[in-house]
Write a protein that binds this DNA or RNA. Sequence first.
DNA 1: GGACAATATGGGATATCATGGGATATTTTG
DNA 2: CAAAATATCCCATGATATCCCATATTGTCC
Lengths: 157, 157
Amino acid sequence: MALFLSTYVNKVDRKGRISVPAPFRSALPEHAFNGIVAYRLFKYDALECCGMGRMEAMARRLESLEQFSQEYDDLQTLFSDAEQLTFDGEGRIVLSEALREFAGITESAAFVGVGSTFQIWEPTALETSKKVKRDRLRHNPVSLPPEPQLAIRGSGE
Amino acid sequence: MALFLSTYVNKVDRKGRISVPAPFRSALPEHAFNGIVAYRLFKYDALECCGMGRMEAMARRLESLEQFSQEYDDLQTLFSDAEQLTFDGEGRIVLSEALREFAGITESAAFVGVGSTFQIWEPTALETSKKVKRDRLRHNPVSLPPEPQLAIRGSGE
DNA sequence: GGACAATATGGGATATCATGGGATATTTTG
DNA sequence: CAAAATATCCCATGATATCCCATATTGTCC
């Protein structure tokens, strides 16, 4: 499984191109599609990204939900707003205006490794969010449960 | 499982390089990634370090949490603040300015084995913290639980 | 106490990565 | 079908990360 760590801030150029950090490109599993999928987070004005394989697995899990249910419909939105972004020869992607606008990205973007996926944030918004979360962790420690069972995602369990 | 003991103090050079003590390098499990992962402790201005395998296990455990819960979001910060640090040919890592600043490290750093992981502290801050803990233990002794129950905690205990 | 090995420290060269620009191919629009 | 717009591809450069080599210090063994 892919593991994304750290945070990198890179520039967006006039053509909407931005370098995906080299460690993230290395961490992506091999796939016929050479790039990533970006979709909008529900809770934050930021994007979540992963390889195509993970997206395909998510699609299979969507199929396990009750068709026509409210949550099925809701999750379909995730897919319809998602964009596949191909790497160019230098490891850059092009962020569409729609994605940039959703995340409030203008000149730079922060690539935020969060374990099995990574996120793309506007850097100032990221710092604000991180500060809140760090403060919360400092005052209300949480723990990780022991080594898992696999969880079904997106089911709201 | 890895076992890290003792405390070593090494120098940071002008490029931010520092030697990881040889016993710690030996104690790390084999992994394709030749280095360590450093992340920020919640309760102290210090870093905690482990091998990549342990970080991967932590990522799997994160996946077992409810995906949109607040504690899930908060713990993601641990990953986004973490950095993978590759060993150079001489067993050194480069501590980024962000990590050094967080831990208050300038000229030297203390490597502190704490069992299954190790920590990196600014040496004076470490001494202060140790003194506080020794005083507390003297007045309020604690015990270890029996063998199978040790849990990894997201916060300093 | 000396020799040797292991470890830590220091410096410089090279490779990689991020950034920037232009050309070409493809798609869209009129 | 042609022109315009956009996406993709290709190439170059500067900064920095990585790699390589040497020396000093410390620990171990005889």
